[in-house]
């Protein structure tokens, strides 16, 4: 654990809490993409399945449970409790265009199988390489789901950014949410540089997806600094 990872996690937590509080206090989820929030709930669910199989630290377990809980609470508020305020007409990004390619990519490019090995898996050539069945401890399935979550997280904010570009504005509090979410990614990039130099740790899948994700926020960061700091709303 280094300071960049810790502040990155806390920034991520801040973003999630800001969004929950905004919806709760204003009794409204206007301007919030429910689709992005469903994707984030899916990201946390598929990534933190290892809660069931491996223990890393109390901090790690606690944060995972909080992230999952908050993600589902947000989805509940948007689609159930404050459904009447949900702006579905402007939340028109086709989420399946993200989930399906990302799902395919996570089978093809992951830490457990090369595409050729994956071909052998689906052809069931090697029993040892079977994803499921007797003798399997689910680790390959978890690994593919982890990869899926990493890829999906990198693009999960797109419905939200699409919604903002469609309506042409965002409330200040929504921009704070996006700022902390982007800050978390930027801090994680520094964390990976740190870990590479001091621990020799290097996770190419996480790093490439993290770079993509951070790039998606760059345009928003620019607007945030130049507009939101000086005015009430984010005009585009």
């Amino acid at each position: 654990m280094n300071i960049f990872r810790l502040t990155g996690d806390l920034s991520h937590l801040a973003a999630i809490i800001i969004l929950l509080l905004k919806i709760w206090k204003t009794r409204s989820c206007a301007g919030i993409s429910g689709k992005s929030q469903i994707l984030f709930a899916l990201v946390f669910t598929t990534r933190y399945l290892d809660l069931l199989t491996s223990y890393i630290s109390l901090y790690n377990t606690f944060m995972k449970v909080v992230y999952i809980g908050c993600a589902y609470a947000t989805v509940y508020l948007i689609y159930m409790k404050f459904k009447a305020t949900y702006d579905g007409n402007h939340d028109t990004f086709r989420a399946e265009f993200l989930v399906v390619p990302v799902g395919g990519l996570s089978f093809l490019v992951n830490h457990d199988f090369t595409p050729l090995e994956f071909l052998l898996v689906i052809m069931y050539v090697s029993y040892d390489m079977a994803l499921c069945g007797p003798g399997s401890n689910c680790s390959h399935c978890f690994q593919i789901l982890w990869t899926f979550s990493i890829y999906l997280e990198s693009v999960a904010i797109l419905p939200q950014l699409f919604m903002i570009s469609k309506t042409g504005e965002a409330e200040t509090i929504t921009t704070h949410y996006l700022f902390f979410l982007g800050l978390y990614r930027a801090l994680y990039l520094i964390n990976w540089i740190w870990r590479f130099y001091f621990e020799g740790f290097f996770d190419l899948i996480a790093i490439v997806a993290g770079v993509v994700q951070t790039i998606l926020y760059c345009d928003f960061f620019y607007l945030y600094v130049t507009k939101v700091v000086y005015s009430e709303r984010l005009p585009l």
Binding site: H111, D112, W146, N191, F201, F202, A206
Partner: peptide, 10 residues
């Protein structure tokens, strides 16, 4: 260390 099945980050 090339990360494989044990992921310690959030």
């Amino acid at each position: 260390i090339i990360a494989r099945t044990r992921h310690d980050e959030l």
